[in-house]
């Protein structure tokens, strides 16, 4: 009798132990399913309706997407994103890699330099935007300073210039993230077995060839991570544009993220805004899904 009792008790406890983990995990899973995936489905649904200021539920098919790609503002945002993203990713990787390789040469004061390269990553894009907005302002910033220092013909008014404003966005964004890319490459470099390098040197490889032929190919995983992180940050860029240029002058620095916000919340074209958000999500998914899939599979 007593044995039977403890058995059911143990049985009950076992079952509880079996359920408890799932129970504890369930709020997070429910939140993710509802607030992330449920909301994604809802936004996709909205993008097929005629919603204006408030959501409405009349089905209009692909009309919004047709309208979206007919809008010159959207085309401009996509072109701006293409310019911004390609320059941002390339320059960040170039600067990050160079800094990492140079820092890896037993540099005196490395411990002092590294935090200087990295601190912008701790700042909000709004702070970065504010600092660069006034630095780049021709009236008080770098141009003005150069004039005071005697270089009267110096001109640096990109931020006010429709053709060049997008490059100021690149400048500020590179300032913020390139140090982070440096840290990623530095971690990669420190992980390379020194014996390989020594062997190559004994074989008479020059430094240039050593890096080009051996080190940089070994950094492939770091390149991939840097690309994925930077590309997805570029697509999500919003705060920096708002703080630095507000999307202007004209539409010169409008990006999909700012387009989505203004169409949804200030122009009352919710369905068009929703479809632009869906396009952004597709861009991110194209980059992140294969990456996450590969990372999770690798772990098995």
């Amino acid at each position: 009798m007593a044995v039977g009792q403890t058995r059911t008790e143990r049985d009950w406890r076992m079952r509880l132990q079996d359920w408890l983990p799932k129970l504890v995990l369930s709020p997070s899973v429910a939140m993710t399913l509802l607030f992330v995936y449920g909301f994604i489905i809802f936004t996709i649904y909205l993008s097929f309706t005629g919603s204006k200021m408030l959501p409405s539920y009349d089905w209009v098919g692909f009309d919004n997407y047709r309208r979206l790609f007919g809008l010159s503002a959207w085309t401009t945002a996509l072109i701006n994103l293409a310019i911004f993203a390609s320059l941002y990713v390339t320059i960040c990787i170039a600067i990050g890699l160079s800094l990492a390789i140079f820092l890896d040469q037993k540099i005196r004061g490395e411990g002092m330099l590294r935090p200087i390269y990295l601190y912008p990553m701790a700042l909000s894009f709004i702070v970065t935007g504010t600092a660069w907005k006034w630095l780049l302002d021709p009236g008080i910033g770098i141009e003005h300073t150069m004039h005071l220092w005697g270089w009267e013909t110096f001109r640096f008014d990109w931020i006010k210039n429709r053709d060049y404003a997008i490059y100021t966005l690149v400048l500020a964004a590179v300032w913020q993230s390139s140090g982070f890319v440096m840290a990623m490459f530095l971690a990669g470099l420190r992980g390379i077995d020194n014996e390989i390098l020594k062997a190559a040197q004994i074989d008479g490889a020059s430094n240039w060839n050593l890096y080009r032929r051996i080190v940089i190919p070994l950094l492939r995983p770091a390149f991939l991570s840097a690309f994925v992180i930077l590309a997805h940050l570029a697509i999500k860029s919003y705060d920096l544009v708002i703080a630095l240029t507000g999307g202007g002058p004209g539409r010169a620095t409008e990006l999909p993220a700012t387009f989505m916000y203004s169409y949804t919340f200030t122009r009352n074209q919710m369905a068009v805004g929703a479809s632009s958000a869906v396009i952004m999500l597709m861009g991110i998914a194209a980059i992140m899904v294969p990456y996450i899939y590969a990372e999770l599979k690798e772990k098995n």
């Binding site: 899973v29 909301f39 989505m260 958000a277 991110i284």
Partner: peptide, 29 residues
């Protein structure tokens, strides 16, 4: 438990979504 990897994958992807995709329903909720 079976399926824990898929759940984690779903949570992981949620870190990277452009938040524009959830703004409209979140405002309503």
């Amino acid at each position: 438990f079976p399926g824990h990897k898929i759940l984690f994958g779903l949570m992981l992807f949620s870190c990277f979504i452009p938040f524009q995709i959830v703004l409209i329903p979140m405002a309503r909720v």
